[in-house]
Nucleic acid binder design. Structure first.
Lengths: 238, 238
DNA sequence: AGAATATTCAATCAAGCGTTTGATTGAGTC
DNA sequence: GACTCAATCAAACGCTTGATTGAATATTCT
């Protein structure tokens, strides 16, 4: 038989070091999300990836560089898909209401399987919580644009909602999303497995309509919101 | 003058090492909440507390023990105050609606100045995010009881709300609360300082009425919530 | 007073960290 | 076949980590 070149068909030429690079990235996103960024060592990551302990530094310069690469890889995909879905949102018979579409377009790319899915959401939750300057910058760099765009779209879908309410409700949307996957297992304990936030479909199935309903709710009177006395009922100590 | 004993009046006898102990606890809750548990060393903590580097191990046995002591100190106060406020909730003219009272009773002790306040909330957010086995146990140990009690009270205040909705909305309440203080600064960036979640009064002033409105909202139809097709609008890839 | 106890301290430990090094590999180029 | 060069490797670097020690010091009890 002649020595025919394997896999010569138009597939990726694939530079040599790329495989290791990818294995390290895969191991990193998983281990970072499981144990936190300070909670896992480069040695653990490279060992998990079946690479030499110097490989991470060789390919990414430093642990910080590795984190940036991990974040970049998934975040850019999420942001891009969000924007694509948002561009596709429109009112039409047979489709859900526009508001639900927008909310789903924001939540789904980050919570479903692609782009690291639940694993990467957990990492994002961790990074928000650890919230060093570096992580804040990464977050701002990759998500500020798309978040602003969604805020704008939500505002257009709800023209009568004051900006103050819009911002706070978006804040609660973010909180619900992050808490849902950053912290799987908490509510199951409280409720005896009644609802399962770690199942993306179940979570989205509840969060999207519930959040839409929340956004549609009456504006909160500013007077009540700013007066500390009205709902800050209990002033027991200090 | 006779050498009269200072402060002999029935005040605390105060064992000798207590002062150092307290300074270490204070420094620990602050530094843990600022840099994460893995992000700060015992040396940093004891230095900040003006104590010898062995003091933390002497007083708390280990870093883990120190974290437990920190958590215990603030969490028990929060849980106790929550329950006291809950016991005081009742319908009466001149008071806010019962639902608002209950939500405020749950949120206020953890978010206001006492019991470590915002600092400790940030630490709780971090611990939830880092979510090792130890932190999960601590959390469950100190908060499960009071959380269950509130879930029950909310259920009684909303007898027509299905349990499924109740649980998910409580989950969103927790998410909003944790995200609000675990992550100060994120929404300000997006909204140009329009709303300030790091101000506990402003945050409570919005969250309490908004969450009450959310709890009062119509139940989400189970069929919609479970069908992946209805609100999971976008199924682009994978 | 003196004995007993509780706390502080400087010094030290082994282990683990992120990173760097210099040699080695092996596929492409001339 | 000599050369290049990105990639890998074992080994070590300097440093920080949580923890421990034993002597020194302060406090309390008798």
């Amino acid at each position: 038989m002649t020595a025919l070149p394997l896999e010569d068909a138009g597939v990726a030429p694939e530079p040599r070091g790329e495989a290791t690079r990818q294995r390290i990235l895969d191991a990193a996103v998983r281990l970072f999300s499981e144990h936190g960024i300070n909670g896992v060592s480069l040695r653990t990551i490279t060992a998990e990836a079946g690479a030499n302990s110097a490989a991470a530094n060789y390919h990414f310069g430093s642990k910080k560089g590795l984190l940036e690469a991990v974040f970049e890889r998934h975040a850019s995909g999420i942001a891009a898909e969000r924007e694509a879905l948002l561009a596709d949102c429109h009112d039409a018979p047979g489709r859900p209401p526009l508001l639900e579409q927008i909310i789903a377009a924001f939540l789904e790319p980050g919570m479903r399987g692609a782009h690291g899915g639940a694993t990467f959401v957990r990492l994002r939750g961790r990074m928000l919580a650890e919230s060093s300057d570096q992580t804040r910058e990464l977050y701002a760099l990759h998500f500020n644009d798309s978040s602003s765009r969604f805020l704008e779209a939500l505002g257009q879908a709800l023209p009568d909602l004051p900006a103050h309410d819009l911002h706070w409700r978006f804040h609660m949307l973010l909180g619900s999303m992050v808490y849902t996957l950053a912290n799987p297992g908490r509510i199951q304990i409280l409720t005896g497995q009644a609802c399962d936030p770690s199942d993306p479909d179940a979570a989205l199935g509840y969060l999207v309509p519930m959040l839409a309903q929340m956004f549609r709710g009456e504006p909160i009177p500013r007077s009540a919101a700013t007066s500390t006395g009205m709902y800050a009922i209990h002033q027991t100590n200090r």
